[in-house]
Design a protein around this nucleic acid. Sequence first.
DNA 1: CCTACCGATCGGTAGG
DNA 2: CCTACCGATCGGTAGG
Lengths: 214, 214
Amino acid sequence: MSTPTGTRRSDGARTHEAILEASARLASVEGINGLTIGRLAEELGVSKSGLFAHFGSKEALQLETIEAAKEIFDREVVRPALEAPPGLPRLEALFEAFFSYLERGVFPGGCFFAGLLADEDARSGPVHDRAVHLEREWIDFMEQLVREARELGHIKKDDDVEQLTFELYAYLELANYHFVLFRDPDALELGRVAAAERLSRALTEPRRSPTNHR
Amino acid sequence: MSTPTGTRRSDGARTHEAILEASARLASVEGINGLTIGRLAEELGVSKSGLFAHFGSKEALQLETIEAAKEIFDREVVRPALEAPPGLPRLEALFEAFFSYLERGVFPGGCFFAGLLADEDARSGPVHDRAVHLEREWIDFMEQLVREARELGHIKKDDDVEQLTFELYAYLELANYHFVLFRDPDALELGRVAAAERLSRALTEPRRSPTNHR
DNA sequence: CCTACCGATCGGTAGG
DNA sequence: CCTACCGATCGGTAGG
């Protein structure tokens, strides 16, 4: 009946985290601004003020929700990619982890950060600023993987890293929006094919199945 | 002092339209759901109920705002493209009109429909349904231009039309989000280069400046 | 964590 | 088009 000493997180911390995961799921559908304390409290079956006491302000809830979503994204997309060997395999693992994360509906509203990008792009304030910072980090991360693939001789040096990364990222992003909007896995397939073909065009050596197009 | 007979639209109709244009601009920043009648009334310097009387419900305001935004988009992006000759020139004109529309800040929050896509993708109801329909129409329109370019022998037949269109559209979309988020025209340049290179790769004949990459 | 409440704002209505 | 108002919900507070 006593709390096991092996328990690292207190009940309070676990509750806090559970709230934030629910908040991130809700925000992926309603948007980080459509998120309200009342609606979240209702979803969790707690009182509004009880929930509010965890955060102190709506803005703090929004910012903490973003960090919780980042933890989930890292766990579901970034870390699986980092388990693959550097270079081309890691890049391919990143894309596959991303599409899998969409397919599995980790967030019911699709990629949390695609939603955040669109919700906050034209606004200003701390939430916008955080969105800018995280988007920059994500682009830098992808560019680093592309650069590694290039330095390992997996992909050619005549593609500009920033440009190639932009194009690959664009496929992920549009695949996400269309997958959610149309509720149709075909959108993911378009994204997968686009990324695979763009990468295959950048390879130094053609693959065992050396199709360039289609 | 009398109303000139040459005036096609009544004052009421012009007012209604002016309201909707302000609404579309506001919604491009706040989102179609972040849009409120009170905020819009304040912006226009009219009473909330006076404004409300024009629409009858918030949902009607949202739906009318979307149609008004479509008029603007058609005027700024679609019609300029249709003035170019069919095939490759028209496709290039469409992209340039789109980037120009972003650069000129026609909507202060970037492309109205990119925002609508992300705001409504995970929701349900009449506004979502309208967003689905318009997105489908826009994709079909771009696919038709690609198909024309192909039938006129401007681009190769070994690229799948749906796939090629998806890739081109993806560049426009990510360029928009990054242009607005980072407030940086470099994002537009990445989009322009991506689209130009992707198109040039699909050409049946290489161009006067036959660079494949960079 | 709760009940009970605050002023502000929401979408919407009545009456003119 | 306006003033004046409705109940519901917003973010947030007091007090326990």
